[in-house]
Amino acid sequence: MSTDPYIWIAAILTLGVFSFLYKDNAFFAVCEHLVVGLSAGYMFVTYWNNVFFPELILPLVQNGTGSDAHLWVPVGICFLWACKYVEKTKDMYRLALAFWLSIDLGLSIPTHMDAGVLAQIAGTISAPLNGSPVEILGNLVLILGTSFALLYFFFSTEHQGVLKGASTAGTWVLMVGFGASFSYVILSRIYLLIGRLLFLFRDWLGIAG
């Protein structure tokens, strides 16, 4: 059995979370609220140390009237954002939100178009139809499967005749994908469970090899 107090605390917290399998109880609620508080504190310190201080406060303190003077603009935007919490000025917050959203949304359009649409179409239509029989079959499945699955999401025309057959084949392709993803989710959770049980039986109690 471990003599490390940290291992004991971690083991007690692990048991506290597992106690939820019986029912929602005070032990679990303590662990739940503890992790919310600790995670919030962790994020606060991490964002302060890695983002807010080195990228805004430090450059402004060192060179706020020189080449980094433009950083007073984000200070102003931060103030506008904080206006949300004052009743009389809360409308100003929309300006900061507009700035923040416009950068993300404007950047997302070409990025999605390049990586999410054009690259995927290029990857699909350029799949080579040569090589071993398995590769040829696989690439045919890839080309037709992507097309059929896309047709399943095409709602501008009623799915009848050829379109109905293609969209049904599309659902089958999607089901194969969902099955593969679901099996990965199940196994990843089971691996985590095995990890926690190993921690309890090996690291804490010392009864497993």
Binding site: V117, T124, L142, A149
Partner: peptide, 21 residues
């Protein structure tokens, strides 16, 4: 994983990207 799963993921990704745009 290499073929039908990729086909499904690609179709979903194309749809999601067009929606996001």
């Amino acid at each position: 994983l290499k073929y039908p799963n990729t086909a499904a993921k690609r179709a979903i990704l194309i749809g999601v990207s067009l929606g996001a745009i």
